[in-house]
């Protein structure tokens, strides 16, 4: 870990000011990812601005839906009565990630900005365009079992590691951001994270001095039929091979609206728009779930070691939809 200046910010303006002044400064919230990356010498900020004392930590109902403070902890968010009752999909997704200890530390804003777990990104002895643009992608021709099957580029095949974000993608969340000018703007979740393209070093569309203040989730009718399914190499405390956030708005056996997002398959949470479109207006049957899954995974472009993700993705999508129809109860 490189030497850095530690700045404890007591108010938002000061925090933003500190960041604006220094291109190599970073915000410090829960720290569960950036401290790890700094120990690995992957992240090398020369200043950390501790924003944990700022006040964006409330979870509340708003006219449009539910607002999650960026600094509220993952544990608090997953267990908040508003979230458990109205957004059980989000609770499940958060609880599927990491461990109790980490969820007690990690903040909602920080969760959005987790960096990939790609081993070539983490290992400074390896080439990686995300860590060091221009050095090449170690995973493309290397060991890519954990990597993307959608939306990757020749520059980067990494996947986004978050579970929470998969649910947020399915729920059409908005990310509220305060810029250096003090103005607040809203970014639709689908536009928040990026595909790697030619600039894999950028995970999202935030500017250097943007501060996430809250995440808004619009009202929906998915609470009765949603499920977050995570497929991983061990039963708990492991990143996803494939995960699925599935939510259905069903009336009289007919699907009024469907939301499906996949994790572990792309550089950002992957919305299964084809499958969603197919399901709208159809009967909520397993046959239709399978057909929708099949349709979505057709576009997948697997790499050498992750071909299994195509078939696994199909099964996982169908299974998650079935579980959602069963009221989202765990098996």
């Amino acid at each position: 870990m490189r030497p850095f200046k530690y700045t404890r910010a007591a108010e938002t303006a000061k925090a933003v000011e500190a960041i604006s002044k220094n291109k190599n400064a970073r915000f410090l919230a829960g720290g569960t990812n950036i401290i790890d990356l700094m120990k690995e010498d992957v992240a090398r900020p020369d200043e950390l601005v501790d924003i944990n004392r700022l006040s964006f930590d409330q979870i509340k109902a708003t006219s449009g839906g539910i607002s999650l403070g960026a600094l509220a902890k993952n544990t608090e968010t997953a267990n908040h009565p508003l979230v458990r009752q109205n957004l059980p999909l989000l609770s499940q997704a958060i609880l599927a990630g990491a461990s109790g200890q980490i969820r007690n530390m990690a903040t909602n804003g920080g969760n959005l900005n987790q960096r990939t777990r790609c081993t070539y990104f983490y290992d400074t002895a390896m080439p990686c365009n995300k860590r060091e643009p221009g050095t090449g992608c170690g995973a493309m021709e290397g060991i890519n079992r954990m990597h993307a099957v959608f939306g990757w580029s020749e520059k980067c095949v990494a996947v986004h590691p978050s579970d929470m974000c998969v649910a947020l993608a399915a729920l059409d969340a908005n990310v509220k951001v305060q810029g250096a000018d003090g103005k607040t703007r809203s970014i639709a979740f689908a536009d928040y994270h990026r595909l790697p393209g030619d600039s894999p070093e950028l995970d999202n569309n935030l500017k250097h001095d943007d501060l996430i203040t809250e995440i808004e989730i619009p009202k929906n009718n998915f609470a009765a039929n949603s499920y977050y399914l995570k497929v991983r190499d061990r039963a708990s405390y492991a990143f996803a091979l494939v995960s699925v956030a599935a939510a259905l708005d069903v009336s009289g056996g007919k699907i009024k609206d469907a939301r499906i997002a996949l994790g572990g398959v792309a550089h950002k949470p992957w919305r299964a728009l084809e499958a969603e479109k197919f399901l709208k207006g159809k009967d909520a049957t397993e046959a239709n779930f399978k057909a929708a899954a099949e349709m979505e995974m057709k576009a997948a472009k697997p790499l050498e070691h992750n071909k299994f993700k195509v078939e696994l993705g199909k099964r996982a999508v169908a299974r998650a939809l079935t579980m959602a129809m069963n009221g989202g109860k765990t098996a």
Partner: peptide, 18 residues
Amino acid sequence: EAKRGDASYVTENIQAKA
């Protein structure tokens, strides 16, 4: 956490009141 009624990923009914 159990006394508070916190949920986990294997909690059968996440919507049930804590």
